[in-house]
C-alpha cells in the first residue's frame, strides 16, 4: 500500500513542479490573448526561473536568516501540499492520512514563512504586505475548514482522498447543493489564498495596492526564484484540489501504470481548464478595495456554513 502511495506521491510532485509554471504561463497567455496581445508564451515562467537562477542574490544589511530560509520553507511546504492532496491519485500513505487539517496547516506554514520574509525585509512595503496577507489568511481559514467539513459529512471522514473516492463512486453527490455551495465557497477561498483578482492583483506596480508583491519586493536572485516557484506550486495544488473535487473522474485509485497515466493526463486537462476560466474571469474583474475583502470572505463563509446545514438536511431526508 505504501509503495503505491509513494509512487503516486513522486509522480504528483514531479508533475506539479513541471506543470505549475506552465499553468501560470497559460493563465498569462489567456489574459494576453483576450486583451488583444500576443503574450510571452506558455514557457515564459520557466524562462523566468532559469534567469533567476543565474542572477545575483542580494541580501540587505538588517535582514537575517529568515530571508534566506523563508523561501525554502515556502517551496518545501508547497511540495508537501502537492504530495498530500489527491491530484493524480487518491491513495494516501498508511501512516500519513491526508487529513484536511494537516493539509491546511502545511499550507499555512508556507503562508507564515512568506509573511516573515516580508517582515524581515525591514521596509515599510514588506510589513504592509505581510500584515494584509496574514489578515486575509486569518479570515480565509474558517471558510476552508467549514467548506471541506461540509464535503466530509456525507463521507464520514475528513481525509481528502476518501472524499474524492466517495465522489467518484457517487456521481450524484458532485452535483448536489451541498457540493455546489461548498465548492463556490472554496473557489473564493482559493482566490484569496493564492492572491488572484479580485483580492490581489499579481501584476500591480502600485505599492499601496500590493499584498503578495509587497512581501517579495526585497527578494532577488534565487530567493525570488524559490518564492515564485513556491507560490506557483500552491496555486497549482489548490486548483488541482478544486479540479479533483469538481471533476473527480480520472483520479487514480491504484498505482498501476495505466491508472497513473490517465490520472496525469486528466490532471493536466483539469488544471488547464480551471486556469483558463480563472484567467478569463480576471479580465472582467477589478481589484477590490482591501477593506471590502473581509465582506467577500464573510460571504464565502456564509456559503460554506449553508453547505454544512444543507448536508444535515440531506442526510436527514435520505
Amino acid at each position: 500500500m505504501n509503495a503505491g502511495a509513494a509512487t503516486l506521491a513522486a509522480v504528483q510532485v514531479v508533475v506539479m513542479v513541471v506543470v505549475s509554471p506552465l499553468l501560470v504561463g497559460l493563465m498569462r497567455q489567456v489574459r494576453a490573448r483576450l486583451e488583444g496581445r500576443v503574450g510571452a508564451g506558455v514557457l515564459q515562467p520557466w524562462r523566468d526561473l532559469r534567469k533567476l537562477a543565474i542572477k545575483e542574490t542580494l541580501r540587505a544589511a538588517g535582514t537575517g536568516r529568515v530571508s534566506a530560509v523563508g523561501p525554502l520553507v515556502l517551496v518545501v511546504s508547497g511540495l508537501l501540499v502537492c504530495v498530500l492532496i489527491p491530484l493524480v491519485g487518491a491513495v494516501p500513505f498508511v501512516s500519513l492520512p491526508d487529513d484536511l487539517f494537516v493539509v491546511v496547516s502545511v499550507l499555512l506554514v508556507g503562508t507564515v514563512a512568506l509573511a516573515l520574509v516580508g517582515l524581515d525585509a525591514g521596509t515599510a512595503f514588506g510589513g504592509m504586505g505581510s500584515s494584509r496577507h496574514m489578515t486575509i489568511a486569518a479570515l480565509v481559514e474558517p471558510t476552508v475548514l467549514v467548506a471541506v467539513y461540509a464535503l466530509s459529512i456525507p463521507v464520514g471522514s475528513s481525509a481528502l482522498s476518501r472524499i474524492v473516492v466517495a465522489r467518484i463512486d457517487d456521481p450524484a453527490s458532485v452535483a448536489s447543493p451541498v457540493s455546489l455551495l461548498a465548492l463556490v465557497a472554496l473557489v473564493i477561498a482559493v482566490v484569496a489564498e493564492t492572491g488572484r483578482l479580485p483580492v490581489d492583483n499579481p501584476s500591480t506596480h502600485l505599492e499601496l495596492t500590493m499584498i503578495h508583491e509587497a512581501m517579495v519586493i526585497e527578494s532577488s536572485g534565487r530567493d525570488l526564484g524559490w518564492l515564485e516557484l513556491g507560490s506557483w506550486l500552491r496555486l497549482g495544488a489548490l486548483l488541482g484540489l478544486l479540479g479533483s473535487l469538481l471533476v473527480p473522474w480520472g483520479v487514480a485509485q491504484d498505482a498501476s501504470v495505466a491508472a497513473v497515466l490517465i490520472g496525469v493526463v486528466t490532471l493536466v486537462l483539469k488544471l488547464a481548464a480551471l486556469g483558463s476560466v480563472l484567467a478569463a474571469a480576471e479580465v472582467f474583474v477589478a481589484k477590490l478595495r482591501l477593506f471590502r475583502v473581509p465582506e467577500l470572505l464573510a460571504g464565502s463563509f456564509v456559503l460554506a456554513f449553508l453547505a454544512v446545514t444543507a448536508s444535515y438536511l440531506v442526510v436527514q431526508a435520505g
Binding site: 494576453a32 500576443v38 503574450g39 515564459q44 534567469k51 506596480h205 500590493m210
Partner: peptide, 20 residues
C-alpha cells in the same frame, strides 16, 4: 497591445531587485 514588448520576454517589474 499594439507593440506588445512582452512577447519578446520583456516585462515591467515593480522592484529594482526583480529587474535586469
Amino acid at each position: 497591445p499594439v507593440y506588445d514588448a512582452e512577447r519578446y520576454g520583456a516585462k515591467l517589474v515593480a522592484s529594482a531587485r526583480h529587474a535586469d
